[in-house]
Nucleic acid binder design. Structure first.
Lengths: 212, 212
DNA sequence: ATTTTCACCGATAGTACTATCGGTGAAATT
DNA sequence: AATTTCACCGATAGTACTATCGGTGAAAAT
C-alpha cells in the first residue's frame, strides 16, 4: 500500500478533490436541495467550516463542479470520436456513432442527470454548465451526422441538420436513461432504434437536397 | 364587473386555486428551491400562516400540484387525439400527430419543464408525477405510431415500438423547447423533422416484420 | 337573536443551513 | 533553531424557512 508522505499543497488538493467527488455524489443521490456544506464537508472528512478553505462559498463549489463536468465531457467526446474513426466498416462506424454515446452515458449517468436537471431549473447555478453541455452535445451529433454523408451549405439546411441532431441527441439520452431504468435491457436494440431514426432523417435531407 | 357575493366555501376554494396557480408560476420561474410558503402565500394574497388552512404542509401542496398537472395533461391528450382524428388526409393526420404535441408544449411549457426537472431530481416530491407523466407521454406516442400503421404482437416488437415512441417523445420535447428558446422559429420545420425521424423508424419496423 | 363555525391574522418557537472568527499544531521557510 | 504559513478545528452569529398557537370578525347555523 502507498504511504502518505504528502506535501501540504498535495494534501490540500486531495481534500479539494474529495470535496468535489462528494458533492457530485450527493448531487446525484439527493439533488441540489440536499447539497449542503455540512454534508459535503462531512462526506469529505473535514469540518464544515473548513469547507471555506477550499471554496469561497457554495456558489464557488458549483462553479467548480461545472468546470469538472465540462472537462469530463470534452474528454469523453474526444474519446468517442477516436473510437468511431477506428471502426472497420461504414455500417459499424454508423452504429458506433450511436453506441458510443449510449455506453458513455450508461457508464456515468450522473453527469447527464445533473445536466438535464440543471437545464430546466432557472434557479440552478449550474444552468450555464447545462446549457453549454447541451450545445456541445448538439454540435457533436450534428458533426456525426455530417460525417455520415450530409453537409449543409445554407442557412435552412444547417438549421435542419441541427434540429435532427438535437432530436437524435434527446432520443439518445432518453434511451440511455431507459436502459439504466431497466426498461431496455439490450443497449444494442437502442442502437438499432437510433440508426433507424437517423436513416429516416438523412433520407429526408438527401431528398430535399438537389445535388450529391 | 362581477361583484363578490361568494359563500364561504366558494371563497376558500378560490383562495386554494390562487395558491396552486401561484405555486406553479413560482415553480416555473424560480424552481423548487424558490418555492416557499412565504412566497406562495404572499403571491396568493394571504398571510404565510394561512397557507396551512389549505394544505397540511408543503408536501401536501406539491401533491396537489401533481394532481393538477396530471389532470391538465390528460385533458390535453384527449384533445390531441380528437383533433388528429379529424384530419382530412392521411398525410395531414400524420403531421398532426406531431404538430399537436409541439403546439401544446409551446402554449404551456411550464408543465413540461416542471416534469423534466422533477424527473431527474431524486429529492423532488414531484418525482412520481414526473415519472407517471413520462410514461403517459410514452404510451401516447406509442399509440400514435400504432395508428400510423404498425401493430406489435410480440414482446420484442412491443419493446421496439416503445423505444421508438420514447425517442420521438424526447425529440418532440427537445424541439419544442428549442422553438421556445428561439432557435427554431418555424414549428412546421420541427414537424418535418419529426415526420422524417418517424418515417425511418416505421420503415425499419416494417422491414423486420414478416407479414402486413 | 344567539350561538357556532372557520378562514384568516400576527407572533413566535423550532429547525437547518451559511459563513465568519479566533485558535492550534504541524509543515514549510528562514 | 526560530519563525512563518496555513489547513483544519470548534463555536457561534446571522438568516431563511416551516409549522403552531391563540385571537378575531364575519358568515352560517340554530
Amino acid at each position: 500500500m502507498t504511504n502518505t508522505p504528502l506535501t501540504r499543497s498535495e494534501a490540500k488538493d486531495l481534500t479539494r478533490r474529495r470535496l468535489i467527488r462528494a458533492a457530485l455524489r450527493i448531487l446525484d443521490e439527493e439533488g441540489e436541495a440536499g447539497l449542503t456544506t455540512v454534508k459535503v464537508a462531512k462526506a469529505a472528512g473535514i469540518a464544515q467550516s473548513s469547507f471555506y478553505v477550499h471554496f469561497r462559498d457554495k456558489q464557488d463549489l458549483l462553479r467548480a463542479l461545472g468546470d469538472e463536468g465540462g472537462e469530463r465531457l470534452r474528454r469523453a467526446m474526444r474519446e468517442a470520436r477516436r473510437q468511431a474513426r477506428e471502426a472497420p466498416t461504414e455500417l459499424e462506424s454508423h452504429r458506433d456513432t450511436f453506441r458510443i454515446p449510449l455506453e458513455a452515458i450508461s457508464r456515468h449517468p450522473e453527469l447527464l442527470r445533473l445536466q438535464l436537471r440543471a437545464r430546466h431549473d432557472p434557479s440552478s447555478p449550474l444552468r450555464d454548465f447545462a446549457l453549454e453541455s447541451a450545445k456541445a452535445y448538439r454540435d457533436h451529433h450534428a458533426a456525426d451526422l455530417a460525417a455520415l454523408g450530409y453537409t449543409a451549405d445554407n442557412e435552412r439546411d444547417r438549421r435542419r441538420l441541427e434540429m435532427i441532431a438535437e432530436g437524435i441527441n434527446a432520443a439518445t439520452n432518453a434511451l440511455a436513461l431507459g436502459h439504466l431504468e431497466g426498461r431496455y435491457p439490450e443497449l444494442e436494440e437502442a442502437v438499432d432504434v437510433l440508426v433507424a431514426l437517423s436513416r429516416g432523417a438523412l433520407r429526408w435531407l438527401r431528398s430535399t437536397q438537389p445535388g450529391s
